[in-house]
Write a protein that binds this DNA or RNA. Sequence first.
DNA 1: CGCAACAAGATCGTATACAATCTCGTGTAC
DNA 2: GTACACGAGATTGTATACGATCTTGTTGCG
Lengths: 230, 230
Amino acid sequence: MTDSPTKPMTAEDVALDLERAIHEHRLIPGSKLGEDEIGEVYGVSRTVVRAALQALAHRRLVELKRNRGAFVAQPTVREAREVFEARALLEPRTARSAAVRMTDGDIVALQAHIDAEHAALHAGDNGRALYLSGQFHIEVARIADQATIETFITELIARSSLIIALYWQRRAALCESNAHHALMTAFAARDGERAEELMKSHLLDLVSSLDLSSKASQPQSLREALKASG
Amino acid sequence: MTDSPTKPMTAEDVALDLERAIHEHRLIPGSKLGEDEIGEVYGVSRTVVRAALQALAHRRLVELKRNRGAFVAQPTVREAREVFEARALLEPRTARSAAVRMTDGDIVALQAHIDAEHAALHAGDNGRALYLSGQFHIEVARIADQATIETFITELIARSSLIIALYWQRRAALCESNAHHALMTAFAARDGERAEELMKSHLLDLVSSLDLSSKASQPQSLREALKASG
DNA sequence: CGCAACAAGATCGTATACAATCTCGTGTAC
DNA sequence: GTACACGAGATTGTATACGATCTTGTTGCG
C-alpha cells in the first residue's frame, strides 16, 4: 500500500476533490487557491491544476482574478437570492417528477442517504452532513431522470453551500432532518403534488434561515474584513 | 486598419467566437475542432485554444473525447427533450418577471431586436436570424434581472441551436416571428400572466417543430454518416 | 513621522517541447 | 481476396520554461 507511485490524477479528479472540500466547508469562501500549492498537493503540474480551477470557475465555485489567482467564491447577497430563486423554479417540479417515477429501490437509497446524514451529524461532522444534505437534493433530480436539470441543480447546491458558509444564522441544527423526512413520506406515497409543495416550503425555509440583510457581511476581500474588525 | 499586429486574443475571445459560429450554424454538429487548426486561425497557442475548448465543453457546446479531440456537440434526442424541459421550467416564469420589471427602454430595445431578426431573415442570413431569435430569449432573462437564471437560459439557448441544426423539420419559416411579436404585446401591457402563458406555448411550439422520433438521425461520428451514404 | 517611489520576490499567463495515444496506410499470412 | 498485424504519421496530454503582472518590503523625501 505504498502511495508514492500513485498514478497521476486528471484535471477532473482534482476539480472533484476541491469541490468536495469546498462543499464540506474545509475550504472557506475567500481562500486563496495557489496553483503551485495545489499542484504540489496532488502531484500534478500547473497545467492540470489550471484546467481544474477553470472548471470550478465555470461552476461559480471559484473566482479567477487575472494575474492574481484563484479564490473560493464569495457569493454576494444578491447572488444568494438568485440561487434560491433558481432553485425555487427547478426543484419543486423536479421533486414532483421524481415522486412519480420513484422505484422502491430509489426510496431505499434515499432513506439510506438520510440515515448517513444523521449519522454524520451525530458524529459531529457537520461538513459531511451538509454535503450529504445537498446530495439528497441531487439524488432527487437524478431520480426525476432529467440529466440537464440535474446538472443545474448540482451547481446550485454547490453554490448554496458557499452561501450557507457566508450567511447562515440559525446554528441550531441542520435544517434538513425534518424537511427531508417529510419529503420521503410523499415520495413513498408517490404523491407528486405533495412532494412539490414540500420541496417548495423546504426551499423557503432554507432562505429564511439565512441572514440576507443587504448591508450585512460580504467580505469582498480578506483585507476588507480585517479592516472592519480593526 | 492593418490586421497583422492584432493583439493576442484571450481564451474567452476564442470561445465567444466559436460559440457564435456554432450558434449561427457555420459550424455544424460533429465538426472536428483541431487544436492546431484553431490556434493558427486565431493566431494563438494551443494553450489558449485548449482553455477555450474546455470552456465550451463545460457549456455542452463541444464534446471532448480523450486523445481524440474536440467536436461540436451532437445532442441526442433525449438531451433535446431535456433541454426543452428545462426551458419550460425556467423561461415562462422568467418572462412573467420580465413583464413586471420591463421599462420603456427595454421595450424599445426588444423591438429593435425583433426588427434586426426580421431584417436578417429577409436578407437570407438564416444563421444570423436564428442567433438573434435566441438572443431575444436571453434579453428577456436579462430584463427579469436574474443573472443566475440568465446564465442557465443562455446555455440552453445555445444547446437549442444545436438541436435545431439536428432535428429541425419545418423549414418553412423561423418560428419566432409571430410568437415573439405576441410576447411584445404582453410586455407592453406589463401583463405578466399573459407573458408567462405565451412563453409556455412558444416553447411547446418549438418542441413540436422538431422531429424527435427516437430512432431518427443521430450521426454519432462523421465517419458513421459517410459510411451510411457509401 | 507619514507617504510615495522603487526594487525584489512571488504568482500568474502563454508558448514551446516532449511523451502518450490514436489513426490509418501497408504488408503479409491464410 | 480477406483479414489481421505492424509501423509511420498525426493529434492530443502533460510538463517545463520564460515573460508579464502584481504584491510587498524597503528606502528616501517631505
